[in-house]
Design a binder for these strands. Structure first.
Lengths: 122, 122
DNA sequence: AATCAATTTAGCAATTTAGCTAAATATAAA
DNA sequence: TTTATATTTAGCTAAATTGCTAAATTGATT
């Protein structure tokens, strides 16, 4: 369950143009690294991308993209899985579900007249 | 329909501890200004609060709160309605619905394998 | 062991953000 | 019209953010 600090981190991560576009690109896919066929990681989706594949799509230096990805990972909106010497990046769907639910509940409770604590804490 | 820039602004507005707490407080209520009974504004909810009522709950100077509220209004997550010499503040439920839907669709499409453009633009 | 490839870390500069106080504005009340 | 109340604007400072390049790290390959 996401607490207030978790949510603030998530919104902060998405509240920057570069990171938003990176996030969108990770969801949209189409710039996948080739996941090794010989030793596939079952938990990696076909569209999993890596840091340099993402960086190619942007006019920023690779270390800049790397640091943005780190912030997004710290906010738990993406996962980064090391395999060989590449790092495969995927969206964290469970967190997205929690955020979706958070807003849905916020609206629902508000319309029902229920006082809702946005971050589920007292 | 919210575009990419709209969403970034919304996330940025919520991605700051002070603003998040202000937003939560606006939703939670309990610190309402007395809306004038003689000349009630029908479109104001009972819990509508004003700038100084919000500021009282925080250890920041009033102009600081005012500027945060302005940013939240610019992001359209709250509305500010002038009545007499007070400004009544309410959450913008329609925007919250759009954000909720945005995340719900993001997750749903992802799980269906549909390539979803997070910001609904090509 | 040396080299290559992918990524991160360190250190720097420019910009933005977030707080403050003091002054300005706008409306209401006396 | 003066005064009081509510809010914003202006101008300042300190801290955080976002970009860069160069160097370090990590793992794979030769």
């Amino acid at each position: 369950m996401l607490g207030m600090d978790d949510k603030i981190k998530i919104f902060k991560a998405l509240g920057n143009e570069t990171r938003f576009k990176i996030f969108k690109s990770i969801f949209t896919g189409g710039y996948a690294c080739s996941v090794d066929d010989a030793q596939p990681k079952d938990d990696l989706i076909a569209q999993a991308t890596c840091v340099s594949s993402i960086a190619e799509q942007f006019d920023f230096a690779l270390p800049t993209i790397s640091r943005h990805l780190k912030e997004m990972r710290d906010a738990k909106i993406i996962t980064m899985t090391k395999s060989k010497n590449k790092i495969y990046i995927e969206p964290n769907i469970e967190i997205m579900k929690e955020i979706a639910e958070c807003f849905t509940t916020l609206v629902g409770d508000y319309e029902k007249g229920v006082v809702y604590q946005f971050d589920n804490t007292k």
